[in-house]
Amino acid sequence: MTLEILTSDLLSPVRHGFFTRRGGASSGIFAGLNCGHGSSDQTEAVALNRKRVADAMEVKTDALIGVHQVHSPIVVTVEEPMTGEKPRADAVVTATPGLALTILTADCQPVLFADPDANVIGAAHAGWRGALDGVLEATLVAMESLGAHRENTIAVIGPTISQSAYEVGPEFLDDFMASAPENSRFFANGQGDRLQFDLPAFGLHKLREAGVGHAGWTRHCTYSDPDRFYSYRRATHAKEADYGRLISAIRL
């Protein structure tokens, strides 16, 4: 099966892709294009999957640049392929051609950034904690340090968990209300004391509030489409031992 790569017209003509799970070498609960070495999948299968992604992005495998994601607002600037242990961070930016910036997700938001005029790109992992703590704004600041202008920057959120699938408890709301009372609009009433959180709407709000020129979401829900996407929450509900990781990439 060939790879399925979702793209956004907003980011065109910058080379990018939100890869689905289709077209990979992994099997079992990881069936498809699992690109997460942090999973318990076979190392050889993950390596082959990543090689297929590198080929699709037309870069060498060592030019697939990623970080050790920790749900933080930390951003790393890269100028060359990484060697050794990955830095603990949740976003990466570059102005160097030939490097493909990547983010791994399984419900959290993968966000790809580009200022085509300045030839600066970025990629961020924005779960609820990272988005609340400012990883999207920090990515824009790091891009500006390389010559980008946020009013010229495009940011697109890829496949992520949608509001109908994201049930949370009342204590979850407290963190958002402490940050800004108007954040209550990203929550809807659920069953009993449960709430439904709109992660992509919150991500779009944070991007637009930060002043990006254009912001969008591909409108794909990871939880509700098991044939195309991995989902941490769906795997947890199914009592599966582990879950695959989707990869999103962008390059100059």
Rank of each mutant, 00 (worst) to 15 (best):
V67W: 02
V67P: 01
V67D: 01
Q69G: 09
Q69Y: 10
V70F: 12
H71K: 12
H71W: 10
S72H: 01
P73L: 01
I74S: 14
V75H: 00
V75Y: 02
T77S: 11
T77D: 03
E79T: 12
E80C: 11
P81W: 12
T83L: 06
E85Q: 11
E85L: 12
K86R: 14
D90S: 09
V92Q: 01
V92K: 01
V93C: 01
V93P: 00
V93R: 03
T94P: 05
A95Q: 07
A95C: 08
L99K: 09
L99T: 08
L101A: 02
T102F: 04
I103G: 00
T105K: 08
A106N: 13
C108I: 12
Q109R: 11
Q109Y: 09
Q109V: 12
P110E: 08
P110K: 07
V111M: 11
L112Y: 06
F113S: 03
A114T: 06
D115Y: 07
D115S: 11
D115T: 06
P116F: 08
D117G: 13
A118S: 13
N119F: 14
V120I: 15
V120P: 11
V120G: 14
I121E: 13
I121P: 10
I121H: 10
G122P: 09
A124H: 11
H125E: 15
G130S: 10
G130T: 03
G130Q: 06
G130D: 02
A131H: 03
A131Y: 01
D133S: 09
D133R: 05
G134E: 04
V135N: 03
V135H: 02
L136P: 00
A138M: 02
A138T: 02
T139C: 04
T139V: 01
L140E: 07
L140S: 08
A142T: 03
E144M: 10
E144Q: 13
S145K: 12
L146P: 05
A148L: 07
A148N: 07
H149M: 15
R150N: 06
N152S: 11
I157T: 11
P159E: 09
P159Y: 06
I161A: 08
I161E: 07
I161G: 08
S162K: 12
Q163M: 07
Q163K: 04
S164E: 15
A165T: 13
A165C: 15
Y166Q: 02
E167T: 05
E167W: 05
V168D: 00
V168P: 00
P170D: 06
P170Q: 07
F172R: 03
D174G: 06
D175M: 09
F176D: 00
M177D: 02
M177V: 15
A178I: 04
S179F: 07
